[in-house]
Write a protein that binds this DNA or RNA. Structure first.
Length: 195
DNA sequence: GTAGGGCTATCC
DNA sequence: GGATAGCCCTAC
């Protein structure tokens, strides 16, 4: 176990942390604040460091301007009305009728159920929901933040993935490494080198 | 229920 | 023509 000096406060953005303990349900799941605290207790043997609180809203500037602002698309960017879009459906889809050539990857065209761009308000709710419940709890996030919305849990997952991509965050196995570095950097570079 | 990849339309 | 957004399919 590493030994370091305790600090008064550690600022961590739970929304951008990977799972340092490789906890279930998957390696790409971002931990809840309580899990991060568990991790600190694990690494520092329950005594060396104590997390007083998680900084959700910095006092010096609005939280949305600092973090959400990086995730929310710019105004008037791909926000125009969309023409009706279609996509292919396959025999496994209950709405599919008719035969499809054997081995073909082409299905029949069907109009999409929903075709709208995400609004700023929706993105804000999504990010707030992720910070509250963590990444990977899409059904719970849907029921609490999008109960009356056409967005289903899969859509929430997809939008979160797009937000991370737009921010330059890898969505593959590299995420764990990238976020671990952010995690340690939040402690301080000096302490990171001593871990 | 969720993650990852595929597909289509749109933007630049 | 490549990159991106959003929805859908499929495996686990």
């Amino acid at each position: 176990m590493p030994t370091i000096e305790p600090v008064d406060e550690v600022e961590i953005w739970a929304s951008i942390l990977a799972d340092p303990l490789h906890r279930p349900p998957s390696s790409s799941t971002i931990p809840l604040p309580s899990q991060v605290e568990d991790y600190f207790n694990y690494v520092y043997n329950n005594y060396a460091m104590k997390i007083d609180h998680f900084v959700a809203e910095p006092q010096d500037e609005p939280w949305r301007g600092r973090y959400l602002g990086e995730l929310i698309p710019k105004e008037n960017w791909r926000r125009g009305p969309r023409v009706p879009r279609k996509r292919r459906i396959f025999p496994s889809n209950p709405t599919y009728f008719g035969d499809m050539p054997s081995g073909s990857r082409c299905g029949k065209l069907q109009r999409r159920i929903n075709n709208d761009h995400w609004t700023n308000g929706e993105v804000i709710k999504l990010v707030e929901g992720v910070e509250t419940y963590g990444v990977g709890r899409w059904t719970k996030l849907k029921s609490h933040y999008f109960s009356k919305s056409v967005r289903d849990p899969t859509h929430l997952k997809d939008k979160w993935r797009n937000l991370l991509r737009a921010r330059g965050v890898p969505c593959n196995s590299e995420r764990k490494v990238v976020f671990s570095l952010i995690f340690y950097t939040a402690i301080s570079l000096d302490q990171f080198h001593r871990i």
